[in-house]
Amino acid sequence: MRRNRLLSFAIGLVALQVLVALLAPWLGFQDPFRQVMVQRIKPPNALNLLGTDQLGRDVLARIVYGYRTSLMTCTASVALALVLGGSIGMIAAYTRGWFDRIVMRLMDVLFAFPILLLAIGVIAIIGPNLWSAALAIAVVYTPIFARLLRGPALVICESEYVLGAKAVGASDARIILTHILPNLVSVILVQTSLLLSAAILVEASLSFLGLGAQPPVPSLGLMLSEGRNFLLLAPWPAIFSGLAILFLSFGFNLLGDALRDTLDPRMRSVAGVRA
């Protein structure tokens, strides 16, 4: 009961933020790009609920559109990593043998880099912009998904229904897609939510460092880094954009955490093998 309430709260928190971001153009926010020179660095007031930034742009509107940027980038990168890493993990677990050994070794090598440093390395190669950041996050998360899914997939591959499916002559693709994948859904849901939470922080860090979103794109990390230059004069853009990053990341992390509890009985038996 209590767990379900926490889960509902987490779902509500995430849904609220995602919906506002998705529906932003129709919710009557101001234009996040419009610069009103006479309204520069105004503290929160009736016209601009969260104040304005150094170019006279509405901070609330920029935060809402920053949500869009962040969610778009992170969803794309985590989805790409899930498809790539997930396929690698499942195929490695299913085929075992040389493919498993070579590919997972390669994943170990990628996994050996500190996350942010690997992302920075990728961006150093392809140049700093928002989509480089997305690709960098995907590269960083692919080995994580591969490792996370290979363990549980190994257990499922040994199960009687997979052996049975093999015995009646089902094709490899069919076994992976209809027998292994559905049994990994709970693991995937939990980990995707947790990794989205982390990806939001990585994207914000990269944009903060000037390696992700470039001006004038509304981006939470970029707002924070621009707001830092006016910190003592006008702290609100920096404070509110940071809070927005926190709420977004917190929501997804709590969701993953609460999901793990709700799906626990299955997860525990599977997760135990991973270690």
Binding site: S205, A238, G242, L246, L254, D257
Partner: peptide
């Protein structure tokens, strides 16, 4: 979870 998801750069600035 809040401690884990507070952006360190924001915490630093604040």
């Amino acid at each position: 979870i809040a401690g884990l998801t507070i952006p360190s750069f924001w915490l630093g600035i604040v």
